[in-house]
């Protein structure tokens, strides 16, 4: 199997308005693609369509050459998706939150490895703090620790830079570059320029959906 996410002639209508129309896209190993567009232009919707969560659209999404929804299970096995909400349970500690995600993905991790991942995102010493006592940025960082441990080749990240400070931003950019360098692929929406990502591809949803140079 190889890493290949493809969209063919995607079109999505919401409330009588076309969010995007005739959208073609191919994402392969080593790609970092940024989806651009103003608020309400359908960035999140597009991400959800591409990972098979929303299916009432025209056109096709293919994973490894096979169309969704048939290939959906295979796609999900290879996908790490970070949504708008941080996805952190307030009453669990940082460590417990991370452990649940790893178990859900079928990755067995020792406490030492989980702790190392949390330290990597700057949460050393906060492993056993209940998430409700962490700041919004720290909660985000717990989510980002999933990227450190991730073995998923495809990352789809919806505004991952929300509530992250300057140091965190550059570390995350670095992580995206490394992931692409190791043969992974990243699909990301963000208002950050991602200036440090070489070979960044951009897809604009304002006006006719197309890749911009």
């Amino acid at each position: 199997m190889r890493l290949c996410l493809e969209a063919r002639q995607l079109a999505c209508e919401r409330d009588g308005r076309w969010l995007f129309h005739g959208l073609d896209l191919i994402l392969g190993a080593g790609d970092v693609l940024r989806i651009e567009g103003p608020n309400g232009s359908g960035k999140t919707t597009l991400l959800k369509v591409l990972c098979g969560q929303i299916s009432d659209v025209e056109g096709q999404v293919l994973w490894d050459g096979r169309a969704l929804p048939k290939a959906r299970a295979d796609l999900l096995a290879n996908l790490l998706y970070l949504g708008h909400a941080p996805g952190i349970k307030a009453h669990l500690t940082a460590m417990e939150n991370l452990r649940w995600y790893q178990a859900l993905a079928g990755h067995r991790c020792s406490d030492r490895e989980l702790g190392a991942a949390l330290a990597e995102v700057g949460l050393a010493g906060f492993e056993d703090v209940v998430a409700s006592q962490l700041s919004a940025g720290q909660q985000r960082r717990v989510t980002l620790a999933r990227l450190v441990l991730s073995r998923h080749p495809l990352w789809i990240l919806d505004e991952p830079f929300t509530a992250i400070d300057v140091d965190g931003v550059s570390a995350l950019e670095q992580r995206l570059v490394e992931h692409a360098g190791r043969g992974g692929a990243v699909l990301v929406t963000t208002h950050h320029a991602l200036a440090n990502v070489p070979g960044l591809r951009r897809l604009s949803l304002s006006g006719p959906a197309r890749e911009v140079a």
Binding site: G106, R108, A117, E120, V148, H152
Partner: peptide, 15 residues
């Protein structure tokens, strides 16, 4: 199921 580590190559797996 797989062990977890921070420097493993991402690999495409079947479901």
């Amino acid at each position: 199921m797989s062990a977890c580590s921070t420097d493993v190559e991402p690999a495409v797996v079947a479901v």
